[in-house]
C-alpha cells in the first residue's frame, strides 16, 4: 500500500491520491508512516531526478501537488498524534522584486520534504521579513531575487535580523538567478541553492 502511494506521487496521479490515502488509513496504517515511508521518499526521488535532468519542472510540480493531496488528509491526524513538521521555513522574494516562480517552486519542494512553509510573497522588505520571523518563529528564512539590482536587499534583511536580535535564532538561505555561493558567503547567509531540489537538501541540512 505504501509503495502504491509512493508510486502515485512519483507518477503525479493527483486524482487517485485521496482514495489511496484513505484506503491506507482504513487499513490501519498510521499517518506518520504514510508520510515517512511513502510521501517523503517519493519527493526525495523527485528532487534527485530533477537535479539529474531526468525530470522536468511540470513533472516536479504535479508530484508536489499529488503529495499535497495526501498531506491535506493526513495533516489533522498528524497534529492529533503530535507529529511535528521537520522544520519551518519562511520564504519570500526581496524588496523591489516581483518574481515568484523560482521562490514558489522552492516553497513547494521544501514543503514536500515535510517542512511547514510560510510563503510571504514578493517585494518583501527587511522589516516585513523581521516581522514574519517574529510571528512564525521559523528555523530558516529563505530569500529569493531575480535581479542584480534587488539582490542587494538580501544583506539588509540579514542586518535587520541582527538588529532585532533574531539572527542567531534562524538560518538564512538564499537563491535566484544572479545569486552565487560566493555572494552568500560574502553577505553571511548560511546557505545558497541554485535550484528547488538543492534548496530542499539545503533546508534539511540547516535544520
Amino acid at each position: 500500500m505504501l509503495d502504491k502511494i509512493k508510486q502515485a506521487v512519483l507518477a503525479g496521479e493527483m486524482e487517485g491520491i485521496a482514495e489511496l490515502t484513505n484506503q491506507a488509513l482504513a487499513q490501519g496504517i498510521e499517518a506518520r508512516e504514510i508520510l515517512d515511508q511513502a510521501l517523503t521518499p517519493a519527493m526525495d526521488i523527485v528532487g534527485k531526478e530533477y537535479e539529474d535532468g531526468e525530470r522536468y519542472v511540470p513533472e516536479m510540480l504535479i508530484s508536489a501537488a499529488t503529495m499535497k493531496g495526501a498531506v491535506t488528509l493526513l495533516k489533522p491526524l498528524l497534529v492529533e498524534a503530535g507529529v511535528k513538521a521537520r522544520g519551518k521555513l519562511v520564504i519570500g522574494t526581496v524588496e523591489g522584486d516581483l518574481h515568484d516562480i523560482g521562490k514558489d517552486l522552492v516553497a513547494m519542494m521544501v514543503e514536500g520534504a515535510g517542512f511547514e512553509v510560510i510563503n510571504i510573497g514578493t517585494e518583501i522588505t527587511a522589516e516585513e521579513f523581521v516581522k514574519a520571523v517574529k510571528e512564525h518563529k521559523p528555523d530558516i528564512v529563505g530569500m529569493s531575487a531575480l535581479l542584480t539590482t534587488t539582490m542587494i536587499h538580501m544583506p539588509e534583511v540579514i542586518d535587520a535580523l541582527k538588529q532585532a536580535g533574531l539572527r542567531d535564532q534562524v538560518k538564512v538561505m538564499i537563491g535566484g538567478a544572479p545569486v552565487t555561493q560566493g555572494y552568500a558567503d560574502k553577505i553571511g547567509a548560511d546557505g545558497y541553492a541554485p535550484d528547488a531540489a538543492s534548496a530542499t537538501k539545503l533546508a534539511k541540512s540547516l535544520t
Binding site: 522536468y56 519542472v57 511540470p58 510540480l61 516562480i101 514558489d104 517552486l105
Partner: peptide, 8 residues
C-alpha cells in the same frame, strides 16, 4: 511571457 512549465 512566462513558462507554461510552471503555469499552463
Amino acid at each position: 511571457c512566462m513558462s507554461v512549465g510552471s503555469s499552463i
